[in-house]
Amino acid sequence: MKKMSTDYPSHWTDMSNYLVHFAKGNGRAHKTFSSTITATRAADPGYWTMMSVLSTGRLRPGGAFGIGRKEAPDPARQRAVCFSEIPPGEWLRLSERRRSAYGIGFSKQFISKRGGGPIWYARNGSEQNKALKKLMRMGEGDPDHPVWRITAMIDAPGVYGLTSYEYEWEREWRHIGDLMFEPKDVAFLFIPEELHAQARAFFSYTYHENLGPAYFCPFIDAKWPKARVDEELLKEPLASQPPLPSYDEYFEMVDLGNGRRISKRISRLRRTSDG
C-alpha cells in the first residue's frame, strides 16, 4: 500500500498533520498527576477519562454516529471514535467545546492505517442525501447490506425544523469501533502546562515500577499558540528513559472529629525538570 502523504509544510497554517481527541469532561476543576487525588469525578475536566484511556491503551466509541445511527439494523456497527484535524494553535476551541483540558493526539498516518478517515457531508435535503436515504431503505432489516459500512462516516448538516446541525468546523475524522494503541503510537498528550513536570514524574515512576504504560511523548497545552506547539513537537525524543523520580514526604494532622486527631504521612512525587 502506498504510504499516505500528509506531511504538510509548517507554514500551511490551515492544515494539520495530526488528529486530536479530547477526553470527556465537565471543565469545573483541575486534577494533578498524583496517587493521592481525592477530588470527586463530578468536577473533572477530563482527567479521569484520560487516565483510563492511557492505562488501557484503548479509545472506546462515545456512541453511534452518522446518518444511519438510528436506522441501521445493527447500531453497534455505527459506533465510532471521533477525532478532529483542526490545525495546531486552534485546539483551544475544541477543548472549550469538550469542556476538557486533557486529550490525545495521533498522526494522520496512524489513524489512516487503522482504517479511520475523514467523514463525508451530504447536506440535509440535497440530492446526495436523498440518494443515501434511498440506499438505506434498500438495506432496511439487512445488517450486512453494504450501505451500513459507510453510514457511520457520513453526516447530514443542515436545518431540521427549528434547530440546525452544523459541525463542519470540527473537520472530523472517525474510526469505527474501538481504537487500540501503544505509547509509541501517541504523537502527544494534552495536559495543562502547570502539570507537565508532575506528569513526567508520574510516568517516570510508572515506567520504573512497571505499573503500566508510560508516556514520554510531548505534552501540549491546548491554550498554546501554534508557534509554541511547533516548538514542543520539534524537540528531540528522549534518548533514554528518565531517572526514577524522588519523593517529598511529610506528616499532616487529620481531624477525625470528636476531638480525635491523627498524624498521616503524605508522599508525593517530586516534579522533574521541564528541560
Rank of each mutant, 00 (worst) to 15 (best):
R60T: 06
G25A: 12
F33T: 04
A29E: 12
P75Q: 09
M50S: 04
W91M: 06
K31V: 00
R58G: 00
S10F: 01
T38D: 14
L54E: 07
F83N: 00
A72T: 04
S16A: 10
K3G: 12
T56E: 13
T49D: 11
P45C: 12
A80H: 10
V20K: 00
F22M: 08
S35H: 15
A64H: 07
P61S: 06
I67N: 00
A39N: 07
K70C: 06
T6A: 10
T56W: 02
R79D: 02
G66A: 05
A64T: 13
C82E: 13
I67S: 06
L54C: 05
S84N: 12
G68Y: 02
P88R: 03
G25E: 07
T36Y: 10
M51R: 14
R93Y: 00
E71V: 07
G46E: 02
T38I: 04
C82D: 09
E71G: 03
D7T: 11
F65D: 00
H30S: 15
T36R: 15
S16P: 05
W12L: 14
W91H: 14
N26G: 10
V53M: 05
L19E: 02
F83H: 02
H11G: 05
P9G: 05
V20C: 09
R93H: 08
G89M: 05
